[in-house]
Design a protein around this nucleic acid. Sequence first.
DNA 1: ATTAGAAATTAACGCGCGAAAAGAAATTTC
DNA 2: GAAATTTCTTTTCGCGCGTTAATTTCTAAT
Lengths: 343, 343
Amino acid sequence: MTEHRIKNMEEFAAVSGLSRPTVSKYFNDPASVRASTRQKIENALEKFEYQPNIYAMNQNRKLTKNVGIVVPHLADPFFAEIARTIEARCIEAGYRPTMFSSYGDPDQETEILNLLRSMKPAGVLLAPLGRLSDRSEIEKFCRDVPTVLFDSNLEGIGAAFVGSDNFSFVNQTVEYLTRTGEAPLFFEMKTPANPNANKRRQAYLDVMQRLGHEPHVVKIEGEGWAFEEIGKRGAMQFLTRGNWPTNAILCSNDRLAIGFLAAAYELGIRVGRTPDCVLRLASNDDHPFSRFTCPSLTTAAHDYDSVSSASVEKLLQLIESGGKYSSRSEQLFEARLVLRNSS
Amino acid sequence: MTEHRIKNMEEFAAVSGLSRPTVSKYFNDPASVRASTRQKIENALEKFEYQPNIYAMNQNRKLTKNVGIVVPHLADPFFAEIARTIEARCIEAGYRPTMFSSYGDPDQETEILNLLRSMKPAGVLLAPLGRLSDRSEIEKFCRDVPTVLFDSNLEGIGAAFVGSDNFSFVNQTVEYLTRTGEAPLFFEMKTPANPNANKRRQAYLDVMQRLGHEPHVVKIEGEGWAFEEIGKRGAMQFLTRGNWPTNAILCSNDRLAIGFLAAAYELGIRVGRTPDCVLRLASNDDHPFSRFTCPSLTTAAHDYDSVSSASVEKLLQLIESGGKYSSRSEQLFEARLVLRNSS
DNA sequence: ATTAGAAATTAACGCGCGAAAAGAAATTTC
DNA sequence: GAAATTTCTTTTCGCGCGTTAATTTCTAAT
């Protein structure tokens, strides 16, 4: 029982009865060595607990197994959830994901990209801030590092975009609200940072026209990422002002809707589909908390799983093709209407 | 205009008119070189955009500038928020934080610690899972790496613990509820994973005894991290059963309370402090969403800022003392009672 | 100007691994 | 069983930097 702590791959190769290059190959890709050899290594691995020095590994590798995941705001459960799923997918695929959040700050987003560049990642999954992003910085980054955009599209940037079909979201909610009652107005922030918001407004206008109803867009004030607070304040104004053109509200996203519902509750205005309610509300995203609002929120749900899987898959393809791609692809997933009690 | 891309520190040292060891010293600690030298480097830095290879840097350094931040569940806005604050503090202090989340899984927590160990971090800030954590693994890890525990205490493990004073939380909420109405019952999960939950129950029992009221603890079923769902289901049962010993509820944490309020709303049971309400509810944590519940939630707030600052400060002290400490310290911060509409 | 002390330079080594090339050994194929 | 193929070993080089020790240069004082 030689209780000799293994210090490097040389020593570990010795105790597994192999040469260092072979062991190196194994750690690079376990399937690249013969089964019997793999056994030898894995036996030794159990007895001696060694793991390669990640810094030495990555220093000389052209391509690391690192993958960067960047989201605009990790404290938003929506992004936390999707980042979590993507992270899991990357690990399954044998990569080492690292998560970053710019917390709504464009400068921090740029810093993250710089840090990532120095990490020589195999690829990056990036959900950009949107309107606030420094487009040229992101563009520059995408030229150096294989990058797949998700959630927020920046036209023409990155090798691919994977996201949700905003038209499908709004189409379903508007159609449902209209079919079961009055056609909705659209409740949104005046200057949304996220490009999806703009697409959703456009989709709302399109659908309303198609259905032959007059559109009403309510734009509320507010900057930053405190959407619930913004939604609540905006709803307070909207609700106390009265004189609503319709009794159906479609919020641009769930976080605004959460604020809206809080305002309605405080004002004693019943929201829901029962006869005693004066307003009906629907929204988009299926935020993790939307099933616990009062009333629970009718919303168009992202296909989280598909978006995550497709993003990662796209990135893996891109990596395997050496970062080259013939044309930028965009993949959009349909929404799934989730009927709850708010409409 | 020599558009020559700098490849390594040697080249960068050349263009800044210095020797490599000096430049190396600068990157290790900018204050360790003469002011005029620092200027030279920073001038060159603006013209030539070079950043040292992080892998080569860390390979041979006894201690990196890396700091690990580990939380039990990043998709929980509470942890996302505290992780965010801690991350910012670390960056301010010149360290490079990396965030990890075990997502409630003990195995993943252990894996994270193993990965961290191989990153040779200067220190780690760890909020362990709690009851589910593999104590021996964490203990082993803390022997190798300077570690400060936060949020959840594991007695005797790590160099220090920084958290909130659960007694102060419960003391304030119980005292408030009792003073303004009936004494509360305590609503919690049967087998809470988080040690704070146990301390809160104990604090509740203590306070009730001190105030001369009979305690009532309602324990609801449920495993995992879907606290809102668990709270809602448990509240559904509790509320439909009727025959409540008191009209005041103290939830162990806000996420349970969010579920409780959702259940009450669905059942048409009014919660709040107005005369038309049949129940009053308070809770602990001041979860980011607790101001948007219906009604908004009266809760005992963590001193987020102090906990984050103190944790990081403690870790920095620990790092500067070479990871040595004479005795394990515990630092607890008082709660701040936030009165909203639920009681 | 002299000089001690601080700061920078030179030179050299090593870290732990990736990578590549050439040859030996094992395995598969017919 | 020999040939063809795959897999492994040996050898060697280099990555980009940390680190150290011995000098040299600079700075700030006497």
